[in-house]
Simulated assay, not measured.
Amino acid sequence: MSEERAGVLDGAIAPVLNTRLYGHEEAEAFLARSYRSGKGHHAVLIEGPEGIGKATLAFRFANHILRYPDPLTAPDRLEDPDPTHPISRQLAAGASHNLLHLSRPVDEKTGRVKSAITVDEVRKAGHFFAQTSGTGNWRIVIIDPADDLNRNAANAILKILEEPPKRAMFLVLSHAPGKLLPTIRSRCLPLRLQELNPQAMDQALAQLGLALPGDKRESVLRLARGSVARALKLVNYGGVDILEAFEAMMAASGPSQRKMMFKIADALSAKDGEVVHGFFVEHLTDYLGDTARTLALRGDLDNADHFARLSSSINEQLTVAAAYNLDKKQTMLDVLSAVTR
Score class of each variant (00 low, 15 high):
residue 138 W to A: 12
residue 139 R to A: 12
residue 139 R to Y: 08
residue 140 I to W: 00
residue 141 V to M: 03
residue 142 I to P: 02
residue 143 I to R: 03
residue 144 D to W: 04
residue 145 P to A: 12
residue 146 A to K: 02
residue 146 A to S: 07
residue 147 D to M: 07
residue 147 D to A: 13
residue 148 D to Y: 14
residue 150 N to D: 15
residue 150 N to T: 13
residue 155 N to A: 10
residue 156 A to M: 11
residue 156 A to T: 13
residue 158 L to T: 09
residue 164 P to K: 02
residue 164 P to D: 02
residue 165 P to V: 11
residue 165 P to A: 11
residue 166 K to W: 09
residue 168 A to F: 04
residue 169 M to Y: 02
residue 171 L to N: 00
residue 172 V to M: 03
residue 172 V to Q: 03
residue 175 H to Q: 13
residue 176 A to P: 01
residue 177 P to H: 03
residue 178 G to Q: 09
residue 179 K to P: 10
residue 179 K to E: 14
residue 180 L to P: 10
residue 181 L to N: 11
residue 181 L to W: 05
residue 182 P to Y: 03
residue 182 P to E: 07
residue 182 P to W: 06
residue 182 P to Q: 04
residue 183 T to L: 07
residue 183 T to I: 08
residue 184 I to A: 14
residue 185 R to H: 07
residue 188 C to G: 05
residue 189 L to Y: 15
residue 190 P to N: 08
residue 190 P to V: 06
residue 192 R to N: 14
residue 192 R to S: 15
residue 192 R to C: 15
residue 193 L to Y: 10
residue 194 Q to R: 12
residue 194 Q to P: 10
residue 194 Q to C: 07
residue 195 E to V: 15
residue 197 N to K: 13
residue 197 N to W: 07
residue 197 N to M: 10
residue 199 Q to D: 15
residue 201 M to A: 10
residue 201 M to I: 00
residue 201 M to L: 06
residue 201 M to C: 04
residue 202 D to H: 14
residue 202 D to P: 13
residue 202 D to I: 11
residue 203 Q to W: 04
residue 203 Q to Y: 04
residue 207 Q to W: 08
residue 210 L to C: 11
residue 210 L to D: 10
residue 211 A to N: 13
residue 213 P to T: 08
residue 215 D to Q: 14
residue 216 K to W: 09
residue 217 R to W: 00
residue 218 E to R: 13
residue 219 S to Y: 13
residue 220 V to W: 01
residue 220 V to S: 07
residue 220 V to T: 07
residue 221 L to M: 01
residue 222 R to I: 11
residue 222 R to P: 05
residue 222 R to F: 04
residue 223 L to M: 14
residue 227 S to N: 06
